[in-house]
């Protein structure tokens, strides 16, 4: 999808910008990846005897794939709500740096906090990757509307996928499910790599990939967080050292 030039009149109206954001959903491979993941989540919810309304509410209000899988599988296998809540909140810590990184791209000095609540809710891995990719081509004062359009579009696709997966339930062929499993991390890897233009981001990606297996030997239960923070800090250290020279 080709966005209008930064000074084009196409950016003048908030509604048009919002619709451009919705349309942008069709321009990323990650939409397909999300669709596949949420087909699986819908099917999992059905097999664990949750209602379709419950599954859809989960997609709309939790809006984080891993958290939903954890919640459904923990509750579905007889885990307590407290166990589920702890596992969900551990998996959700990663959203914090993403929100902190995305919101400064969206807001202007005049944007009130309440207008950032909705885009903050939409932020998950896909939104973070796509905002980093697309927002630089959007005029700053229109970025909020664009991000909201993008978020509404992505959530809508995933609501349809959740319902479809729920109806298809356990009828997903095994090969397809295995394909989904491979596709999701690969797509995220390639999108992140493509978006990493600065040395510090590339380094963080490489160090993160390399450090995680080492860190996971510590069996802390928060391996992903620990390895991520360590790799991110190391990458930043290299960036800082280069700046100083």
């Amino acid at each position: 999808m080709v966005l209008p030039a930064l000074d084009s009149p196409g950016w003048r109206h908030t509604t048009t910008t919002f619709l451009l954001g919705v349309r942008a959903v069709g321009s990323t491979i990650l939409t397909l990846v999300l669709f596949a993941t949420y087909l699986g989540i819908g099917a999992l919810a059905h097999d664990s005897n949750f209602s379709m309304g419950w599954a859809l509410a989960g997609t709309l209000f939790v809006w984080a794939g891993p958290a939903q899988i954890i919640l459904i599988s923990t509750l579905g296998t007889g885990g307590t709500a407290v166990q589920a809540a702890i596992a969900v909140t551990l998996s959700a810590i990663r959203l914090f740096p993403m929100v902190v990184a995305v919101l400064p791209m969206i807001r202007t000095p005049q944007t009130p906090l309440r207008k950032l609540v909705l885009p903050a809710h939409f932020i998950a891995v896909t939104m973070w990757i796509e905002c980093s990719r697309m927002l630089p081509a959007v005029p700053r004062e229109q970025r909020l509307a664009f991000a909201n359009g993008l978020g509404v579009g992505l959530v809508s696709v995933c609501l349809v996928a959740t319902a479809a997966g729920y109806v298809l339930s356990a009828n997903l062929p095994e090969l397809l499910a295995a394909g989904i499993l491979l596709l999701t991390p690969l797509a995220f890897l390639f999108s992140t790599a493509r978006n990493s233009r600065q040395l510090v981001d590339r380094l963080a990606l490489l160090l993160g990939l390399a450090l995680f297996p080492i860190m996971s030997m510590l069996h802390t239960g928060v391996d992903i967080l620990l390895s991520g923070l360590t790799a991110g800090t190391l990458a930043y250290g290299v960036h800082w050292w280069r700046e100083q020279r």
Partner: peptide
């Protein structure tokens, strides 16, 4: 923010590594 972005990227790298069934380690 440079540090935050680097950490978010590296956390995602960990998630990718953890759910990759290709390599024996993850």
């Amino acid at each position: 923010l440079v540090w935050v972005r680097a950490s978010a990227t590296a956390i995602l790298a960990g998630v990718i590594r953890a759910c990759w069934p290709v390599f024996p380690m993850p």
